[in-house]
Simulated assay, not measured.
Amino acid sequence: MRPIKVRQNGDSCLLRWSYEGDTYSLTWGKWTDAVDKAKMEYIARLVYQDSLSGNFDTTLHKYKSWLEGLVYTGNGNGSNGNSTPKPKQPPLLKLLEQRLIEHYATADYSLLGNLKKFKKEIKTPTQAKEFMKWLDEKGLKVSSQKRYLTTLKVLRRDLFESIQLRVGEKPRPKPFSINEVDRILTSLYNDPHYYHYYDFVLFLLNTGMRISEAIGMRWQDIDLDKREIHVYEVLNRDKGNSSKRKRQTTKTTKFRVVPINNKLYQCLSNRSRGNPEDLVFTTTSGLVLDDHNISQRCWKKTLEKLGIPHRPLYNCRSTFISHCISSGIPPHDVAAIVGNSPDVIFKHYLGSIKKPVLPEL
């Protein structure tokens, strides 16, 4: 017997399988509801396991009762053994584990670890508040708490719906000045240990690409004749393992073209081109770049040596965006180049370089 998969049937979730020559189907919930879909995924595994072990309920009452939040008694009815059915929701950990199987996210994986460390099963809204308080007392950033809470509300709205968190507005990313950029690049170019990463940092500063986009850049994506870079893929970490990455579409899933300026053209022209499928930037031993290692060693030490206040390597992107706007490029054109929406450009970057001159009254 093959594992059972949840399929879409109109607006509903559908399971269809065969057992001992007979065909069965079960339709329930909304296809667009992540919780309903997760519950059906659980039932798919339960039916599969019951079929293999010979415990399959051919009446389907067991599975329907579970979906309706009732405890199955084995007599064809869902109840708690008394006259009044007792609601029962699937365990939070099970729902989160299923969500990770379907759509892996680093934040959800971290949330799973914290739920396990909490060592208490969350069954009531009061216990849900205790868990969120525990996260806060651990010193977890409010922004991370809010990200966790969004996932928890999707999984168990009945437990977490009443909880609200306020996150203060983040300050705009502080770009590097032209002088700081020149000093950083000069230092890398002359550094006997970190010279290898000079081209990579120059590439980030002159394209505004996301780091995973630059790491995944291949020679086939670069057209020096037309002076343009085609961006449509990234190399993301596979389940938080920095030594293993998988190729995916960009964050926005949209293709875009990044122009190549004179400085970047000279840099790329001087590099040895490999096969079209080869990565443009690698480690000294030819492996995929690990941006954490670059950030903690090359980048951090370079800024410390120069006495430049530390900002993450990702700030190369905000630096590019801010200086593009400062140079007079229309925000909607900048948005198209870096793969943001114009709203994001206006909200987070406009005015970060040039400040308005107020009148003297």
Rank of each mutant, 00 (worst) to 15 (best):
R2G: 00
I4T: 05
R7P: 00
G10Y: 10
S12E: 07
C13Q: 05
R16H: 04
D22R: 15
Y24T: 04
T27I: 11
K30Y: 12
W31I: 00
D33F: 00
A38F: 00
K39V: 03
Y48F: 15
Q49W: 02
D50L: 06
D57R: 08
H61K: 11
L67A: 09
N75H: 07
G76A: 08
S79R: 09
N82F: 11
T84Y: 05
P85L: 09
K86G: 06
P87N: 05
P91I: 05
E97Y: 07
E102G: 01
E102T: 12
E102L: 11
A105L: 10
L112K: 14
G113R: 12
F118A: 02
F118M: 01
E121I: 09
E121G: 04
I122A: 07
T126N: 09
K133I: 11
L135F: 01
V142L: 14
S144R: 14
L149F: 08
L149R: 05
T150V: 13
V154I: 12
R157K: 14
L159T: 03
E161D: 14
R166M: 07
R166H: 12
E169W: 00
E169H: 09
K170L: 11
K170D: 08
S187L: 10
S187D: 11
Y189L: 13
Y189F: 11
F200V: 03
T207R: 01
M209A: 07
I215S: 01
G216N: 06
W219E: 06
W219A: 09
R227P: 00
E228L: 10
I229N: 05
N241K: 14
S243F: 09
Q248I: 00
Q248V: 04
T252E: 02
R256L: 02
P259K: 08
K263C: 00
L268N: 08
G274S: 04
L287E: 14
D291M: 03
R297A: 10
H310W: 15
C316H: 03
F320T: 04
H323T: 02
S327T: 09
S327G: 04
I329A: 09
P331G: 10
A336H: 09
A336R: 14
A336D: 12
V338W: 07
G339A: 09
S341H: 06
P342E: 05
F346I: 11
K347P: 00
H348C: 04
K355L: 13
